[in-house]
């Protein structure tokens, strides 16, 4: 069975052969503590570093490319926007916040902090 390795919390999540699964959905389902807020490619809170298995991921679509910009080339993906059909390993900073909420971001930060998901 293929599996997602959520390295930061040292958890493996298996899924059925032949399926394509959404990475954030699997993380929420199995309580893997991936930070997230909007689930729609807006906030960037759920950006993950793809450590291995990028060939098993679907290519980023418009919303993800727009949100991540150059981070795509640095190996980042948004968990909510990403589907995998095979083994893959992800890591992240457990304390990361939305890209517009980071200190020094143009948005000033914190505008949607109250809507943080509990996933």
């Amino acid at each position: 069975m293929p599996r997602i390795y959520f390295k930061t919390v040292d958890r493996y999540v298996e899924f059925a052969e032949g399926e394509e699964v959404n990475v954030l959905r699997m993380a929420i389902r199995e309580h893997c503590d991936v930070p997230w807020q909007c689930a729609s490619g807006n906030c960037g809170t759920d950006r993950l570093v793809v450590e291995e298995g990028s060939e098993n991921l679907d290519p980023p679509r418009r919303r993800e490319r727009a949100r991540l910009g150059d981070l795509v080339d640095e190996g980042y993906r948004l968990a909510c926007q990403t589907y995998t059909r095979g083994d893959v390993t992800f890591s992240w900073d457990p304390d990361q916040v939305g890209l517009d909420d980071e200190p020094g971001s143009s948005d000033g930060g914190g505008s949607r902090a109250g809507w943080a998901g509990t996933g």
Partner: peptide
């Protein structure tokens, strides 16, 4: 495109 992903998460929650 928006609903493919947002409803994955709504559905799971």
């Amino acid at each position: 495109d928006l609903h493919i992903t947002s409803d994955e998460i709504h559905g799971e929650r």
